[in-house]
Design a binder for these strands. Structure first.
Lengths: 209, 209
DNA sequence: TAGATTGTTAATCGATTAACAATC
DNA sequence: TAGATTGTTAATCGATTAACAATC
């Protein structure tokens, strides 16, 4: 498993491969050819072989790929097996839904804290955690050193908060706000979840289909 | 505004341009150069000029771009000004949060109905609508002809439901489930919102940053 | 006019697809 | 062995960047 520079186009596709292979594994399928997988996923066999080759030769000529090995291997590349400590900032309705509907463990994270500024929310419990006051953030981070932050706060609160989190050692953001963290801080990792953007794209597609 | 084939890479960037320009407009800025916008958005000036040129020459040499014209023009390309009728399927916690936190009007949609199978949910009101039983779906669609569906149901319910919706005239899906609608139906438009995929990518990025 | 900045062409870079020899 | 399917190289395609003449 040589992970020495996998292109970002390949990385974007990995979670989808991971889901499809996980599904096949669950169904008890043990091997699959690039052609068969291509048909199921609506890709070309060529692309699948190129992609899978980035991280070591798990295929076997004349036979195909071993699903379990491939699945585990993608999981390792995505680092899903050594949970990254994460905290949630902003536990409004969105935060609660996100916290309670995700299986963070399966996706490489462990949620170890949740923070809010609203006295009506502080003290509530969310997915086995008690929501803390934002005042406790600094002490908490110095003690537990979370590496990731799930940002479910309003955009207006995001600039100051992200600044503080970076100072406290956070290096990755799962960002639901519209504030663009990466512009001031190209050194941290950011995954934006922008519902509105996807809706606007859908609007375009429907009109132009 | 010649919309005769804008590449999909450009389309993906349009919502972000739209947000940044909307912000500038709100701040009362009336013009901007590609260089200045590039700095703010972390893009190259060249790319911005190429992108904006796809849909007509709104720039002026020696001066820059008129923000209001550009903003409106992108809004028109994305078709945000003639709302597409949409219905929501599945009004669990996620559905409620989505329905109540989005400003659909601003993003080109009008939510005209919401459906669920759970008797405990049917009858509740969500964002000015009363949740209906799924039994009413067919009659409702024949009468109101929604073109878009927001799919907030479990993945297991998605295949059958999407099939039915397509029969009833839906041509666009905002899909929160993991079921891959596009494979069986390449003719419909789909925007997937896959939280888990973005989390896995974040996991990779944090590890490899 | 001089300076600034676009529109657009050409050059570069990267990603996808096609092809086929290697090999299980 | 014969058939299937990979690994990998080469060809194609598309997207991004660079450069500069056009022009406000």
């Amino acid at each position: 498993m040589k992970d020495n520079h996998i292109s970002s186009s390949v990385i974007k596709r990995l979670p989808r491969y991971y889901r499809f292979l996980g599904e096949l594994k669950k169904q008890g399928v043990s091997r699959i050819s690039s052609g068969d997988l291509a048909r199921r996923m609506n890709l070309t066999a060529s692309q699948i072989r190129q992609d899978f080759n980035c991280f070591g030769g798990f295929g076997q000529q004349g036979y195909g790929y071993n699903i379990e090995m491939l699945y585990d291997s993608i999981g390792n590349i995505l680092d899903l097996n050594s949970p990254t400590k994460a905290i949630m900032l902003g536990v409004g309705k969105l935060g609660v839904v996100v916290a309670e509907n995700m299986n963070f463990k399966k996706q490489g994270f462990s949620l170890i804290g949740a923070f809010d500024v609203d006295p009506a929310i502080i003290g509530k419990s969310v997915s086995d955690l008690t929501v803390r006051s934002l005042d406790e953030l600094e002490a908490f981070c110095r003690e537990h050193k979370p590496k990731a932050a799930f940002l479910c706060v309003p955009s207006s609160a995001a600039p100051e908060l992200s600044e503080k989190l970076i100072e406290l050692g956070v290096t990755g953001f799962w960002n639901f706000s519209h504030y663009d963290i990466a512009i001031k801080h190209p050194e941290v990792s950011v995954e934006n979840v922008h519902f509105g953007d996807t809706l606007m794209r859908l609007s375009y597609k429907i009109k132009n289909q």
